[in-house]
Design a protein around this nucleic acid. Structure first.
Lengths: 293, 293
DNA sequence: GTGAAAGCGCTAACAT
DNA sequence: ATGTTAGCGCTTTCAC
């Protein structure tokens, strides 16, 4: 052993993984490395992986194109024991193809036949919407991404809560990304009857909303209140100070990692879904009064 | 072939890579997934990798602990043909250990004996500092990270430029991350003779400076001008509107990918260093007059 | 316990 | 051209 080290021996992980059936490897799919929510989840996954001495194989996707299908395929080919996926956009029907081919734990989305760590999106949207209503807002718009399998609950929570309060839901479909949210908000504020509050589907979109309001010279929260979703670190700084729904992303990652370990050790048990409750973080963007400009 | 597909055959990438000498695999080391500059570089790397049909193996490091040494080790064990590293913090002396063990292209840092895509940091710091001086600033502080091998040129460019203008350099050592920059700036502004401009080592730190100024109620750029470095997307939105030095991170990633391909095809040629020139992006945080609050 | 041998699923260098 | 065989560097099983 001593001499091996001295002679510059390097264990070959590829050969090792080929030889052993249980290769102590966990795949990770992350939709978008530019979105910090996924990076937070990755941090959590990494923690449990390290704890269980698992090697991680990362496959990143893209919002456009095949939605990450090729990334999942690469995990299959890499023969990971099990994988964790954050931000799966692949339609349910297509996910069927991966049944049996890939043990998979989905984060923040339930997929028929797979394990999942779900964050109760209806509840989170309900918290956010209720918060705005209680602040006296009545014209509350909601920026939602294009509909896709498994991600309807945020919108549904908003719509249900608005209806329950006797208010008219005002959903606006808006592409992913900060710039798209800015454009949508600019258009929204153009209209005669602009909303007094905007609830964005995620923090990145909420930041885009803030950009638009800033450009228009509108004050937050005095002219327009804004709520985000995810509680990424970008929402926290004093300049931004964004009220948001905390999904506890790192924790979701850890839970998913744990589930993945369980799944790899117990391949044939029924799919299990763990549900986590998000919490509302009230900050200045909906504050009773503003210290913002 | 048809029947193979029908029978659910999946090529085993692990076996394939063990069998072939040239395994068409490129390793990627990224210091910190939370720093978008590295993600941008990754985008560039991914583009050339896709173009040359290379599989990517990602290893992420951490600012604390072993500085990514174990991540590089994992790339060695994974037997990648060649690797690209963004944000190497490992000291030169330790990097010696990887000579011959790992073909490596370093981005934004020159490492003796390895290929590198270098961004001219002295030049970038010179541009930023000159810009502030031309704006009439004389008390210009610079937030620099703790000294580490291969990253002194930004600081040196600032110091040289200040001296050339007959001004006194005012370097402040400040840990990585937005929060550390906020704390440092808060302390700085406490002093009787506060600076009228701050040039931060990177955008994340610059955002931390903005946070501190906002908290103190100081106006940008009227009270204090701020310059960042990297031109990450976080510096661009109208709320932030940060003057910064653009390192063209995606382009650096592409170039590094190209070098990596060259290196893998020509293992024994001399190390080659490509130098790229950063450019100054002037925005509102140093603007002649402010639309910011 | 220690040591030899048989694969893991491919690729590449053979032979036909 | 097509078919066959010998490894790649490990893990694991089996014999001692």
């Amino acid at each position: 052993m001593e001499t091996a080290k001295r002679m510059g021996y390097e264990p070959n992980a590829v050969a090792s993984r080929l030889a052993s059936k249980d290769n102590r490897t966990m795949g990770v799919f992350l939709l978008d490395l530019h979105n910090e929510a996924y990076i937070d989840m990755y941090d959590g996954i990494r923690e449990t992986a390290a704890h269980h001495a698992r090697e991680l194989v990362i496959a990143s996707g893209s919002i456009t194109g095949d939605l990450g299908r090729s990334a999942l395929d690469s995990l299959v080919r890499a023969r990971v024991d099990v994988a964790v996926a954050a931000g799966l956009l692949i339609p349910d029907a297509v996910m069927e193809e991966f049944r049996g081919r890939l043990k998979l734990v989905s984060i923040t989305r339930k997929v028929q036949g797979f394990d999942a760590v779900y964050s109760d999106d209806w509840h989170g949207a309900n918290l956010a919407t209720k918060h705005l209503i209680e602040l006296g807002h009545r014209r509350i718009a909601h920026l939602a991404p294009p509909p896709s399998d498994g991600y309807g609950e945020r919108l549904r929570g908003y719509v249900d809560t608005m209806r329950q309060a006797g208010l008219t839901p005002w959903p606006i479909t808006c592409d992913f990304g900060r710039a798209a949210a800015t454009a949508a908000t600019l258009a929204l504020m153009q209209s005669g009857d602009a909303p007094t509050a905007v609830f964005a589907n995620n923090d990145q979109s909420a930041l885009g909303v803030l950009d638009a309001l800033h450009t228009r010279g509108l004050r937050v929260p005095d002219d327009v209140a804004v709520v985000g979703y995810d509680n990424t670190s970008a929402s926290q700084p004093p300049i931004i100070n964004l009220t948001t729904v905390d999904i506890h992303a790192v924790e979701l990652g850890k839970l998913a990692g744990d589930l993945a370990i369980r799944r790899s050790e117990n391949p044939d048990s029924d799919p299990i879904v763990v549900t986590s409750k998000p919490t509302l973080i009230v900050r200045g963007s909906t504050g009773p009064t503003s210290s913002r400009c």
